[in-house]
Amino acid sequence: MATSRERTVPYEIPEDGSAPVRAGIPEHGRVPKYYWLKARIAPLLDELGEGGVLPTERELALRYEVSRETVRQALRELLLEGRLRRSGRGTVVAGPKMEQPLALASYTEGVRKQGRTPGRTLIGLERHPCPPALARELAIGAGESVWHLERVLFADDERVGLESTYIAVERVPRLDRDFEPDSSFYGYLREEMGLCLGDADERLETVLATPREALLIGTPPGLPMLLIHRASRDEEGRPLERVRLLYRGDRFSFSVRLEG
Rank of each mutant, 00 (worst) to 15 (best):
P14I: 01
T70S: 05
E170A: 09
L227C: 12
L75G: 02
P131G: 00
R58G: 13
E170M: 06
A200P: 10
A155F: 01
A139F: 12
T117Y: 07
D16F: 14
G198N: 02
R159P: 10
E6S: 07
S183Y: 11
G88N: 08
G222D: 15
L204M: 14
L162H: 07
G198H: 03
M225R: 04
P96C: 00
L258G: 05
L60H: 06
A94N: 13
T108M: 10
R203Q: 13
S232A: 14
Y107C: 00
R116Y: 14
V111P: 15
A39N: 13
R30I: 05
A42R: 15
S164H: 09
V111H: 06
V21L: 13
R76D: 10
V71A: 04
T165F: 08
D182C: 04
G161W: 02
I25R: 13
R30W: 12
E109T: 10
R58L: 12
E236S: 13
K38D: 06
T91I: 12
T108S: 10
L189Q: 04
M98W: 11
S18M: 12
F179T: 00
S184Y: 07
S164Q: 15
A200R: 11
P96Y: 03
D234Y: 01
R7E: 09
L240D: 06
L138D: 08
R76F: 08
R83H: 15
D156R: 01
D199A: 07
V172N: 01
M98H: 11
P101R: 01
A209S: 05
I123K: 06
R251Q: 09
G51Q: 05
E137H: 11
E81H: 06
L216D: 08
H229M: 09
S67E: 08
